[in-house]
Simulated assay, not measured.
Amino acid sequence: AKPVEFTRQVSTDAVTGEKTYGAWSADQSFDAVTSPELKGYTADKAQIDKQTVNGDSKDLAFTVTYTKNAPTITTE
């Protein structure tokens, strides 16, 4: 996924050196991601839905597990 960036203003008191932090920039979103198709396997999640994040959000991690499809038997 393409990364997103957040900014905020930081003011430093010239006398004390104390920093004051402003609010983070607006929320941003990651688009939904469709799980790739692998021949002979089925994903447990067809897609990871759109995610909205802000400057205080933690890292996001998702796991998609693929299971081997049962063999197909053909008869004539």
Score class of each variant (00 low, 15 high):
Ala61Asp: 14
Ala14Lys: 15
Asp44Gln: 00
Glu76His: 10
Thr16Gln: 04
Asn54Arg: 11
Asp56Asn: 11
Thr67Ile: 04
Val33Ser: 08
Asp31Arg: 02
Glu18Met: 12
Ala70Pro: 09
Lys45Tyr: 03
Ser25Arg: 04
Val53Asp: 01
Glu37Ile: 11
Ser25Trp: 03
Ala46Met: 12
Ser25Cys: 09
Ser57Leu: 04
Thr67Gly: 03
Asp59Ser: 08
Asp56Trp: 07
Thr65Gly: 01
Thr52Ser: 12
Glu5His: 12
Thr65Met: 03
Leu60Gln: 14
Thr16Arg: 04
Asp56Ala: 11
Thr12Ile: 03
Thr20Val: 11
Lys58Phe: 14
Lys50Asp: 09
Val64Arg: 07
Thr52Met: 06
Tyr21Phe: 13
Ala32Thr: 01
Pro71Cys: 04
Lys2Gly: 14
Asp27Cys: 08
Gly40Asn: 03
Asp49His: 13
Val15Lys: 13
Thr34Val: 10
Gly55His: 00
Pro36Ala: 04
Thr42Val: 10
Lys39Asn: 15
Val15Cys: 06
Ala32Asp: 11
Thr42Tyr: 01
Asn54Asp: 14
Pro36Cys: 04
Glu37Asp: 15
Asp13Leu: 01
Ala1Asn: 12
Asp49Leu: 05
Gly22His: 06
Ile73Met: 13
Arg8Tyr: 11
Lys68Cys: 00
Gln28Phe: 02
Ile48Asn: 04
Ile48Glu: 04
Arg8Met: 02
Ala26Cys: 02
Gly55Cys: 01
Gln9Cys: 11
Ala26Ile: 05
Lys19Ser: 13
Asn54Met: 11
Val10Glu: 13
Thr7Ile: 12
Leu60Phe: 09
Thr65Pro: 00
Arg8Pro: 00
Glu37Trp: 01
Phe62His: 13
Val53Ile: 15
Thr67Arg: 11
Lys45Ala: 03
Ile73Lys: 14
Lys50Phe: 05
Gln51His: 04
